[in-house]
Design a protein around this nucleic acid. Sequence first.
DNA 1: AGCGCTCAATTGCATATGCAAATAGCACTT
DNA 2: AAGTGCTATTTGCATATGCAATTGAGCGCT
Lengths: 249, 249
Amino acid sequence: MTETRLDAVKLDGAGPVYDQIRRAIRDLVVSGEWQPGTSVPPEHALMEQLGASRMTVHRALVQLAREGLIIRRRRSGTVVATPPASHAMLDILSIPEEVRQLGQAYAYEVLARTDGRPSPEVAELFGLKRSDRIAHLLVLHRADGRPHVLEERVIHAAGATGLAGEDFAETPPGDWLLQHSLWSQAEHAISAIGAGEEQAALLDIAVGEPCLLVERRTWNHSQPVTAVRLLYPGFRHRFVGRFGPYGAA
Amino acid sequence: MTETRLDAVKLDGAGPVYDQIRRAIRDLVVSGEWQPGTSVPPEHALMEQLGASRMTVHRALVQLAREGLIIRRRRSGTVVATPPASHAMLDILSIPEEVRQLGQAYAYEVLARTDGRPSPEVAELFGLKRSDRIAHLLVLHRADGRPHVLEERVIHAAGATGLAGEDFAETPPGDWLLQHSLWSQAEHAISAIGAGEEQAALLDIAVGEPCLLVERRTWNHSQPVTAVRLLYPGFRHRFVGRFGPYGAA
DNA sequence: AGCGCTCAATTGCATATGCAAATAGCACTT
DNA sequence: AAGTGCTATTTGCATATGCAATTGAGCGCT
């Protein structure tokens, strides 16, 4: 349990004190400066460091805990939570996991990879400079041997450390990115489209067969990280969500 | 601004006091007993009624406000919020709104309506008894005159007051239900499917054209309210969502 | 009627204080 | 080694208190 640097918590004087504290700590967490697993200073320490009462510090920490950024336990103290990227989001992000949860055998092949500069279309789509270095991948995921989803992905080298030396033989790029990149923003778009010729061949379906197209782009503090297009044969996939009128259940 | 009944707030003695208060008021709101717009008793009143300190009452109310169930303003007091069903959820629920936000003219036709008992399939799909009374509707929504989405809907009469006397001439059923029913749970499923013959004719597209199928079922405290299948021509629709690793942005 | 002023109701925030509950770590025993 | 119990640390909860900020409502003046 590594220690965190206490003097890293700095207030900005804007708004209520408890909220300054909350934002200060939140920023340290989401920026990665306080890594998951490191322990947050106890209320007494923050109280002295910041010159606020314990209840005020408490209020900030309680709120952060409710937001899931930190985990608090009596006596053992407060630690930075491991980001839900590897939990809640995993359902959507990790295809191997998705397939295994269906009780099917997972496998994948990297069909193509090109490293270099983005084409004009890719640069446009993603807001990249033509001079940025990227990797362009085409991956086919299989469930019980049958084609499950076709993945076309662009990875921005600057956002993923160790990209050049990785051949994705062990881990498909989506899962690899979970380990080797950070993201703060994501955008999803879902639409329906007919399979093109090449796509149909790879997915082993008829040309024009309806498919779900999931497009996802992720950024880390406005720097692009990756963009992906996932093409699912439509008839055997559904995306399901449950919620109540006041939010997810 | 109607008044709320103060003695309706009852604690159950389970867990922290602030949370008992929070749940007590939340239940009054989500059950509809405290209607949107009615004013919640001020902190002092609750404090006396419940024998808790103001800060404790305050804590419960602040949390409810953050959850969006109530709205608090100094001096004017606290009122029950109008359910986000007509706000956040509206984006998805109200097709007229969706079309108008695209800057297109909205129109709709009720193509068919049957009132009676559910067929075995409908009963199965929805967990209804064969003896329940339902309405079965087929509605076509148009944007700028062109078919926009095809809606097939089942409404459980017991969950929607005034269903029998409503002909949906003024308001399409989805929007009408927002006014005349409550829901506490919803489930969405999105998939891709090719248009069938009848569907293609109605939507004015080719048979087999890829479409987005959105299926939604809603319940009110485990009692079915409505189920709907929305069929969107795929090429001109996308569902977009944005979020960060710690939740929606 | 309209305008501006004051007053008081109500929520927002922060502090100080005390006790309760959980438990990590340690000393001690078996 | 394994259990057993004590103690100190840390968070959780509730209270009492005081002041600040906002603003609806009434009042008085023109």
